[in-house]
Design a protein around this nucleic acid. Structure first.
Lengths: 158, 158
DNA sequence: TTAATCAGTACTTAATTGGTACCATTTGCT
DNA sequence: AGCAAATGGTACCAATTAAGTACTGATTAA
């Protein structure tokens, strides 16, 4: 129903791998191998995370990436935000709103910030340590949201 | 950072218009004109909302659409879910997870449901009546989330 | 000096979205 | 009965975006 890009998805996978590395630097190649992700993508994503100051990088032999802060101080919102940039939930929510031709007729524009904030708060409430722990609260294939949506939207499975 | 489709965006605009119609049926053409949206899109969206039982429809002359329930009983999650279908936030979160080749190496898969639920709860906490009211709490062009992301992601404006 | 590693950018291909067109069906009105 | 106003359904095209690849440059430790 709401999508993040695969880049952000992979980003979280990689960040959890680094969280489990306990401060040891890990090369892009090793992480790609561990998580079975294509190396060029891994490389690209790690670079972006480093530029967003979520990772520190060390070049050269024995170099690699490590978390820039403790895992508890990195949220899902941090990671997703770093990889997807400041694209808000609708077009009206970014600065180009000033040019929105429907501005005068759009009664909800003032309410999107509230929705955005709610989502942002939800993502910020989940930190990397929580995501890195195995032992999820729920069995692996139980997806409550998905089921809820499936029953609601009859016959429109994509 | 997280996106919904324009279809869902328009959907909320149209639902607020219908909420303000106070039970009077409104035709797709009228709504398109009022909100300055392309008629074919409006038509398509209203049809989907009716199929999801958020609207009732009346064919023929003087027909149109109206809310199937009170505005307080319709949430942002309902509307977005009806229009975007049960696409969860990542691929791993839908039923095809069973075939996910990275399953054994993906440590976060058990945590996505938690994230999805958090977002779903956030969207469900906002109902249509709130969205339909003018008088937003904040001035029209103040977008806290966007600013936060902008400062966080330096040099990667898209 | 050499090999490992990160940094940056440009490019190609595939998928998705936004939007349109068309025709069928239903219904009220004259 | 017939007409016009509506919704219902489906198929389709074009434009945008995302996913993934390739290549070249810069840095560092041994």
């Amino acid at each position: 129903m709401i999508r993040i890009t695969r880049e952000a998805d992979y980003g979280i996978v990689l960040m959890t791998a680094l969280a489990q590395a306990e401060g040891q630097p890990r090369s892009a190649a090793l992480l790609a191998q561990q998580r079975r992700l294509p190396l060029p993508m891994v490389s690209k994503i790690l670079k972006a995370l480093a530029r967003a100051n979520l990772l520190t990088s060390q070049r050269g032999v024995q170099g690699g990436y490590q978390l820039a802060r403790p895992a508890t101080a990195i949220s899902a919102a941090d990671i997703i935000g770093a990889l997807e940039g400041p694209i808000a939930i609708t077009e009206c929510s970014d600065e180009s709103h000033d040019g929105c031709v429907r501005q005068d007729h759009c009664e909800v524009s003032g309410h999107w910030p509230r929705i955005n904030q709610a989502i942002h708060a939800a993502l910020q409430s989940i930190n990397l340590l929580e995501m890195s722990r195995p032992d999820p609260l729920q069995p692996l294939h139980f997806h409550p949201l998905h089921r809820a949506m499936t029953t609601q939207v009859i016959g429109r499975l994509i």
